[in-house]
Each structure stands twice: as structure tokens, then as C-alpha cells.
């Protein structure tokens, strides 16, 4: 084993853990009795009808194969492919998130640059930040009158705070020396903001963006369960109503995978803007 690199050993261990977990899960599911083994009484009382239970991983894998081999089919409002459902969710997350970034980053700059703005806006931020984004839902539905836009609003409101706070914190923490370099080179305020303050604060800002996208992805599932219609959150809830636990488990896994990919994307961005002092 010592000949293998750390990564290879970790990969082998991961694989063993996965197989072991799946085997335990498979073995833990009680097998359904075949109809022929039942007594007449049992058949009469309906025991012959397959009981809903937690499906074994083998069934989930079959389901996953079936769904992923045709992810974009559309057979009416309650039967759309997993790709379409995830597409809707990503569209909502990215729209709300982009709007939030559009507001939070400039506003964060302002707050970070001006101690007065920081002190003036801080109480509002502190009160608004801990509100669960779903608590806004009734108000959003009433005011916006559109479930699609309300879901986007909920994403907007939940992703704005980490970006706002991190931008303000990053901008306020830019070293005075670097700002002095900009001043002694007679850079105008706009140029200073873009060539010195933005790159200096970028790692902190991107960290805020990464936290925000994580929260937005958590919240979209809950929001879609409420507003319904489309999206991965709606899909989970719909399959629960259908008592199709195989699909529920499959979609839970898909939520995890997409969340991981979104996070990895920002991890990549984070590495790009990082610098060593």
C-alpha cells in the first residue's frame, strides 16, 4: 500500500466505503414475500399488493439509469425529465443570485469604503439577515402575484447577505499601503476601485459568493416545494405524493451532485482570484 500516492489510497478507501454502505443498505431492506407464499386470508386483506417501503440501492440505480438516459423528456405537467426539473431550478437560482450579486457587490463596496454608510446600514443588515428566506414567501406571493418570480425573489433575498457582508468586509480590510500606492500614482477613484480594491478584496468577495450559492441551492428546494409547478424541489415533493421513494432518493442524490458542482465552480473562481501576500 505504501507505494500508492495519498490520493490513490483515499480513492480506494472511498470506493470501499461506498460499496460497504450500499451492501448494508441492500441487505437491510426486507424482501417482499411473493404472492404464492401468502395465506388466503393475507391475500384477502390486501397483503398481496406491494407495500411501499424504502427501496434498495439496486432499484435506485435502475431508476437513475432510466432517468439519466432520457433526462429531457416532457410528458405533461407532472411528468418531466430530471434534466428539465434541474434546469428550472438552476435557472431560478442563477437569476435570483445574479440579481443579488448585482445589488450586493456595489452596495458592499459603498459600505466598505464609507464608515458612515457602514454604521448607518448595519442595523438593517443585522435585522434582515437572520430572517429565513421562506418567511418572505407569503409576502412575496402577495406583492409579486407570481409564483415563479416569488421563488426568484426568495433566492435573491437569501443570497444577498453573505455577498454584501463579505464585500463590505473585504473592501474595508484592503491594506492602507495598497490604497496609498494607488494614491501616489494618481489613480482616479474608479480606477482605484477596479485595479486595486477589487483584486485586493476579491478573495473575500468570492468567499461570500460561494457561501451565497450554497445557501441559494439549499433554499430553492424548499421554495419549489411551496410554489410547485416545476423544479427539482417540486419533483421531490411530487414523487413523495406519488409514494415513489425510488425517485425521491434519486432526486435527493441529484440535488447533492448539482450543489457540489455549483460549489466546485466557485472553488475554481476562488483559486483564480487568490493571492499570497
Amino acid at each position: 500500500m505504501t507505494g500508492l500516492s495519498l490520493n490513490k489510497r483515499a480513492a480506494i478507501l472511498s470506493f470501499i466505503l461506498l460499496i460497504a454502505g450500499l451492501l448494508i443498505w441492500e441487505a437491510a431492506i426486507p424482501a417482499q414475500k411473493a404472492v404464492g407464499e401468502l395465506t388466503e386470508y393475507e391475500i384477502l386483506t390486501g397483503a398481496g399488493v406491494p407495500k411501499a417501503g424504502v427501496p434498495p440501492p439496486s432499484e435506485v440505480l435502475v431508476k437513475a439509469w432510466e432517468q439519466l438516459s432520457n433526462p429531457f423528456y416532457d410528458a405533461g405537467p407532472n411528468d418531466k425529465g430530471i434534466g428539465i426539473q434541474i434546469g428550472y431550478s438552476i435557472y431560478r437560482v442563477l437569476t435570483g443570485y445574479a440579481l443579488a450579486a448585482f445589488v450586493a457587490i456595489p452596495l458592499g463596496f459603498l459600505i466598505g469604503m464609507s464608515p458612515v454608510a457602514y454604521k448607518a446600514l448595519n442595523p438593517f443588515i443585522q435585522v434582515l439577515r437572520p430572517i429565513s428566506p421562506l418567511a418572505w414567501m407569503p409576502l412575496a406571493l402577495f406583492i409579486i402575484q407570481d409564483s415563479e418570480a416569488s421563488a426568484i425573489f426568495v433566492i435573491f433575498i437569501c443570497s444577498i447577505w453573505p455577498m454584501l457582508i463579505n464585500t463590505a468586509f473585504g473592501v474595508a480590510g484592503v491594506r492602507a499601503d495598497w490604497v496609498n500606492v494607488a494614491r501616489t500614482h494618481e489613480l482616479n477613484p474608479l480606477k482605484t476601485a477596479f485595479t486595486v480594491i477589487l483584486p485586493a478584496a476579491a478573495p473575500t468577495i468570492v468567499t461570500g459568493m460561494r457561501i451565497s450559492i450554497g445557501i441559494a441551492w439549499l433554499v430553492i428546494v424548499a421554495a419549489e416545494m411551496l410554489v410547485g409547478g416545476t423544479g427539482i424541489g417540486y419533483y421531490v415533493w411530487n414523487e413523495w405524493n406519488n409514494l415513489d421513494l425510488t425517485s425521491v432518493i434519486f432526486s435527493i442524490l441529484m440535488i447533492g451532485v448539482v450543489g457540489m458542482l455549483l460549489d466546485a465552480l466557485f472553488g475554481l473562481l476562488q483559486r483564480r482570484v487568490a493571492y499570497v501576500e
Binding site: 485586493a200 482570484v273 501576500e277
Partner: peptide, 8 residues
């Protein structure tokens, strides 16, 4: 402290 911009 040199004041070089570390990302450049």
C-alpha cells in the same frame, strides 16, 4: 514594506 500589489 515594499507595497507591491501581490496579485500582480
Amino acid at each position: 514594506n515594499y507595497s507591491l500589489l501581490p496579485w500582480l
